[in-house]
Design a protein around this nucleic acid. Sequence first.
DNA 1: GGTCACCACATTACATGCAATGTGTTGATG
DNA 2: CATCAACACATTGCATGTAATGTGGTGACC
Lengths: 249, 249
Amino acid sequence: MTAYSSVQRVAAGSLLAERAYDELRAAILENRLPPGTALSVPALADRMSISRSPVREAVQRLIHDGLATHVPHRGAEVSSVDIEDLRQLYVVRESLEGLAARLATERLDVAALTRLEEILAAHERVLAEGGGEGAHIQQDMRFHQVIRNLSGNTHLIDILDQLQGRAHLGLHTLWRHPHAPRLALEEHRKVYEAMAAGDPDAAERAARNHVTRLRVRLSQATERAPGAEEGPTQREHDDHRAAATHRGP
Amino acid sequence: MTAYSSVQRVAAGSLLAERAYDELRAAILENRLPPGTALSVPALADRMSISRSPVREAVQRLIHDGLATHVPHRGAEVSSVDIEDLRQLYVVRESLEGLAARLATERLDVAALTRLEEILAAHERVLAEGGGEGAHIQQDMRFHQVIRNLSGNTHLIDILDQLQGRAHLGLHTLWRHPHAPRLALEEHRKVYEAMAAGDPDAAERAARNHVTRLRVRLSQATERAPGAEEGPTQREHDDHRAAATHRGP
DNA sequence: GGTCACCACATTACATGCAATGTGTTGATG
DNA sequence: CATCAACACATTGCATGTAATGTGGTGACC
């Protein structure tokens, strides 16, 4: 029974696996599939009216991205980002956002600068109008996205992209600091100003500072509303061919 | 015709896909499959006497790792790392190795310190005995690997692991600086000393410096022996949903 | 009522079939 | 001799079949 769709558009840019990936990723990031949700390949394939192959591929990409977790004999599920994990993520992001801001400043042009201004303005508007958490997060993501794309460093862009995805996922679950959006916007302005002034050092400091404060606020917020304080929740790091060099007893 | 292997050990830790991945990764990193080599899924499946499914999965993981590149209608091939790409990679590594060294210093214990000493000693031995480029690279990798594992930061570990893989791949092709191994060892010692002294700042600086110099030496070496100087060989960055914020003409 | 064995189910991981599609080659033609 | 058209090939991407395996629930038994 070859489903209903008679000829599956194999045309340009179709790529069922990619579509499935994009769809699932978006659903996860928008919290439509909250952490812990089972990602059954057969079920998803059925719902999307495609076969299991592309879905399986999509799920594996999600796992690779850290947005999903493979549970031995129960399939995959949407990752639950715990606070410690998120904190560690911010530690890495701190360095890299700083680096991105520095590189971006060095490669900045008028168009990019204008673009950043637009984003800040839109962000301000969102906060003024009380556009909701989702709208804030979107502007926040755009700001960082533009900066890292300006860096011109492929590796940096890819890594930050992934880290932001993970962070985003975590933020849906944890953290509800009422002033956070406003503080973030103010810090973004500081980064922007340093960049506009053509000061890479200042831009790096400002960006690092921004992430550091995000991390601190996260810790503070979770301190008084403990969610997973017991147990370090230390993810077992499957020694990634680290044993290759082991030999002794 | 289910091949020869009658019952395919599906037992613990089997996982054909993973085995295939490990095998291919090792082959690529050891330069047994030099950059540009075609990675035909059917051919590999045939050679390994398994079906295409696990091989396809392995190849996709390699692509994700950046060790292989997907060529539209010709399958995948082992990535050719060009100098600019490698240089950019080192820029990122600079920040992250610095961070790793800092964090590692803060979490250092006697056992780890001893382990680092062992590696330095082994490295020294390799260089003294002229153990060859491969042996040097191995010690180099071990050193960095131990440090990042000490950092205790899962994200950092994963990212550096991948970056080191890519760098390793590039180094097979490019770069033949006769003194490089000796210089690297000396710089490793500096990092070690700062760590042993319990000085996170110094450790970070030393580690960053180390990578910076690797990068500079790379540029110098390729300056006089241009391999791919013509054409920026800029890898097309498949706009990674970056276009989401694009709109204007 | 609690414990344990059993059973049906869901899922994975792998094998394999198959149509669509671009590549490279070969041979015909101007 | 160069150009071009037709062809056979290899490969991908997707669909689907299947055995092995662990989960969860259900009922019997103590």
